[in-house]
């Protein structure tokens, strides 16, 4: 496979095949937002630090500012728009786990992956995963309660 210049690629996003006109050096984050209109993944640090742009790639959380769009060909991408009534979304509402809301989609995607991959995660694993995202409003306690509530459901 090679891409030498601007061209059309096909991505599998939220269960749908989507076409996008990209440069080989275009980032997945920019293509999702600017080409596909999926603005749930948020641009913030654009340096892999904050996690606001997190999406799922084959079920694993990935910071879309650190992935080329062409790298995503052949992989299943899920953005926050692709989560529909996931338990984590309700848990964030129930626990008031957001303030300004800018980091929320990244946190939910990351926590959703954690609940799917490690449904019986212990405190150390939860801590390790949550460290990937920053909340400028420092609402960590509520976010932590949200993920704990979903994981405890799994545990029971």
């Amino acid at each position: 496979m090679k891409f030498l210049d601007t061209g059309t690629i096909e991505l599998l996003v939220n269960g749908e095949k989507r076409s996008a006109l990209v440069r080989p050096s275009d980032l997945l984050l920019d293509v999702l937002r600017d080409q596909l209109g999926l603005t749930g993944a948020k641009p913030s640090c654009k340096n892999g630090d904050c996690g606001a742009c997190t999406v799922l790639v084959d079920g694993w959380p990935v910071k879309s500012c650190l992935m080329l769009a062409v790298e995503a060909i052949g992989h299943e991408i899920i953005t926050i728009e692709g989560l529909q009534n996931a338990p984590l979304q309700q848990a964030f509402v129930d626990e008031f786990a957001f303030q300004c809301g800018y980091c929320t989609s990244g946190f939910i995607i990351n926590c959703h992956a954690l609940a799917r991959i490690h449904p019986k995660a212990d405190e150390a694993v939860i801590r390790e995963w949550l460290q990937s995202n920053l909340c400028r409003c420092t609402g960590y306690e509520e976010i932590s309660k949200a993920i704990h509530s979903v994981l405890s459901t799994h545990k029971s």
């Binding site: 090679k2 891409f3 030498l4 210049d5 440069r23 080989p24 050096s25 275009d26 980032l27 080329l68």
Partner: peptide, 9 residues
């Protein structure tokens, strides 16, 4: 964004 183009193989 990356402010220049490159080829991808």
């Amino acid at each position: 964004m990356i402010p220049f183009d490159f080829e991808y193989y």
